[in-house]
Amino acid sequence: MRRRHPLARQAIGALAAALAATLLVSVLLDLVPGDPVELLLGEQAQPIDRAALRKAMWLDLPLPVQAFRFLRGFATGDLRSSVPPFQQRIWPRLREVAPRTALLACVAMLFAVGLGVPLGVFSAVRAGAAIDRLSLAVSVLGVSAPSFLLGQLLLWIFGIRLRWLPVSGDDRMLSALLPALTLGLGLSALLSRVTRAAMLEALRQDYVLAARARGLSEARVIWRHAFRNALLPVLTIAGLQFGSVLTGSIVVEKVFAWPGLGTLLVDSIDKRDFNAVRACVLVFTLTYLAVNLLTDLAYAWADPRARGGGA
């Protein structure tokens, strides 16, 4: 019972943060310089029409009430677009676009971990050798290059020059490859550096010396002893960086014309569809908080010392 306590507190904290974030978004939307009613109806509109639109967009209500109505609609699934004709439900659109972004983010994480971690291990084992310097150079470049440049380069090479992969399009796995690679490369560069540092640290420990003294093969020492201990900080960083993958997807979705959650967010901001904006932000935020929570869980599972918060 006692052991679950810190986790429960974290979960409640995450929910509270999501609620506060929703309220904050409502405050922000209220602070917008241009009046959305003016934007939608033009300056010539009759006062009675303006009043009707304000009412329909909930702009006549106090902020906490707006936030509450939004959350109620979001929870019951009845949330509708807040621009005329107010009919379109938001959930079906979310259900349509969110899986595409999720696919992108997950494949990107696979790329990031699958490329970055082995690269980091190899450069730690061969610290100072050519492969280490090469991977250092590549990772410094990878961290520095903006995702939209990488995206354009990949598009140009694989899509236009070589014609191996589709340039843009629907949600088949194949067309997800390029955007996911774009999204994952930056993170893989970061992960390779974190892995390298963690591996160097692990390889210095006494248990590695002991394992070698017992005559274990070098591969076994590296992978079974050092790597397993080095993995913890790496996975934590990977989990915490999931948020940057999520927001990175907003940019990458534009490069590849990928109709995901980020595209919906940017479109909704353009159209001043406040409910859709709130919904997108809430989905992004909840996903991010959930992944952070899972990261903490995984950490506690992998490292008994971090469990329970006692001691």
Binding site: A14, A17, A18, A20, A21, V25, L28, F242, G243, S244, L246, T247, G248, I250, L265, V266, I269, V277, V281, F284, T285, T287, Y288, L289
Partner: peptide
Amino acid sequence: AFPGLLFAIL
């Protein structure tokens, strides 16, 4: 609680 750039974009 806002992931990465989201808040700035908004």
